[in-house]
Amino acid sequence: MKKKQQHDSTAPDERSTRGTLLNAVVVAGSLGMTLFVCICTGVFLGKWLDEVLGTSPWGLIFCSLLGAVSGFWSLYKRVLSSIDGDSRHSSDHNAQEGRWKNS
């Protein structure tokens, strides 16, 4: 028996759009998880310091704020690196298209 070949009826533009959308969702989820982990780490560290040092609630307040600041700083760095990566990728892509057209 011959197997029927299935052709993907999805146009290349649709696939790249879906890939871009999926990539954006993954990046957004990763950014949210990074912020969540930083803040939770600050809260648990602050609670622990308060128990050990008996400084309630100052350890919790300080470490929670420190966790939030470090989380937002991490988000800022990731977004900047993502923007730099996108601009490099698009300039590389445009340069390759120019070479193909000139060939």
Rank of each mutant, 00 (worst) to 15 (best):
K3H: 14
K4Q: 12
Q6W: 06
A11G: 06
D13S: 15
E14F: 01
R15C: 01
R15Y: 03
S16P: 00
T17S: 12
T17D: 10
G19N: 10
G19D: 08
G19T: 04
L21H: 08
L22M: 09
L22A: 07
N23C: 11
A24E: 06
V25M: 13
V26Y: 05
V26T: 08
V26M: 08
V26L: 12
V27M: 11
A28F: 07
G29C: 04
G29H: 00
M33P: 01
L35Q: 02
C38H: 07
I39D: 00
C40K: 10
T41I: 12
V43L: 04
F44C: 05
F44E: 02
L45S: 06
G46T: 03
G46I: 01
K47I: 12
K47C: 06
K47W: 05
E51F: 09
V52W: 05
V52Y: 06
V52A: 06
T55A: 07
S56R: 14
S56I: 06
L60C: 01
L60E: 05
I61E: 03
C63T: 06
C63I: 02
C63L: 12
L65K: 04
L65W: 06
L66D: 02
L66C: 05
G67A: 01
A68S: 06
V69L: 13
S70T: 07
G71I: 02
F72K: 04
Y76T: 09
K77T: 09
K77V: 11
R78Y: 05
V79D: 04
S81D: 15
D84G: 07
D86R: 09
R88Y: 06
H89K: 13
N94I: 15
G98P: 03
W100S: 12
K101T: 10
N102L: 15
N102V: 13
S103K: 15
S103V: 12
